[in-house]
Design a protein around this nucleic acid. Sequence first.
DNA 1: TATTTTTTTTAGGCTTGTCTAAATTTACAA
DNA 2: TTGTAAATTTAGACAAGCCTAAAAAAAATA
Lengths: 216, 216
Amino acid sequence: MHTLAEENYLKAIFKLSQITENVSTNQIAAELATKASSVTDMLRKLAEKLLINYTRYQGVSLTQTGEKVAINIIRRHRLWEYFLVEKLHFKWDEVHDMAEEMEHISSNELIDRLDEFMGFPSRDPHGDPIPDNKGNFKKNDLKPISAVDVNICGIISGVKDHSTAFLQYLEKQGLTIGKKITVKEIITYDNAVILQMENKDIQISRDVAINLLIAL
Amino acid sequence: MHTLAEENYLKAIFKLSQITENVSTNQIAAELATKASSVTDMLRKLAEKLLINYTRYQGVSLTQTGEKVAINIIRRHRLWEYFLVEKLHFKWDEVHDMAEEMEHISSNELIDRLDEFMGFPSRDPHGDPIPDNKGNFKKNDLKPISAVDVNICGIISGVKDHSTAFLQYLEKQGLTIGKKITVKEIITYDNAVILQMENKDIQISRDVAINLLIAL
DNA sequence: TATTTTTTTTAGGCTTGTCTAAATTTACAA
DNA sequence: TTGTAAATTTAGACAAGCCTAAAAAAAATA
């Protein structure tokens, strides 16, 4: 259907579109760890295939078709992550790179059956919603801890940063999905946050607070 | 580790090596539906990487390293086929192309866990033995029906031809793995074979008899 | 507004893996 | 043993995707 490179570009553009309406060449280059000139080449190709809206120097957005393709890749990625953690017992910080390869397996029938086999899970191991086979999925209504007030409590439900390093840090602190936490104090000096979890106090930096999401 | 193209060449060479000691350029070209000149290019590359023994005009064989890689690809392919049939309930004639993609997922840890998850199966849905994670696997001691005498009985245990068309034909005739059959008669005129299975007689052509394997 | 900086695109090249056409080597047959 | 056919390799080209360096456009700043 689409090449591996094309799929990776569409996924990157989709991801960046969540933050800014129009995505710039440099943003894509940074996301994919490639050069701006390579991005320009690919954008011309994707535009020709009607997967993106592109005018020179103006940045890009996905067409409806492009968005459908991107969401399908995300669906595949998240279902495979769920499979790796729930069925093969990998840890949540080990599955990203494998799923990155597996998401390019092309059969939709395969993915639909995998979905059914696992009982139609709604979130992957990092708390991200899994699109259904029509491409529908709930917007994340999760809030970064950095955005809530003192004395608010909630359930750890997702992460913004998916890096192994961050996930391993959370694991070590016990800050895993499903845990109930309360924001006890925000240090005005450096915006560090003190959480209460299971009657213990845990201090996290602002960086961590920005990347750790809770459901209220 | 190795590129997709390299892996496909190694697999093809391994398969052809089962039949003839030294594999020719044209044989590989036919197996991979490509041109002899493309094969020559790749052979030089694989020889440089010490995966094959190659001297110009003399055909190739796998080195020990090359064979290890090839067997690993076959292990991955057969485990994924088993997964697709046993866990996702695909039919045996539907899984080949999907497994062809999945066999290139690179993580060995993933494959070992998949193996464990499924209870270390010893044969794939087509009766082919699955190598263990050390690369050991039993040689197939199966015989094509075309090679057994009248009145001999056995269990259908494998196929030589893995094409969808052949598998669908067998399915329709009920000639599936595990079924017990007896060779009743061999027609001298065209070498067609009459089998008895579950008290019914089934006639198969010589072509089918060559490609259908039984355990005695 | 003019100038500088940043962003983006173009131009030209490289690698992988493919192809066709031509040359070469090997195999077979008279 | 020599000539022809078949198999194989080489030569040269092409597409996809990437790169660097240079040019062009847009944005920021004086």
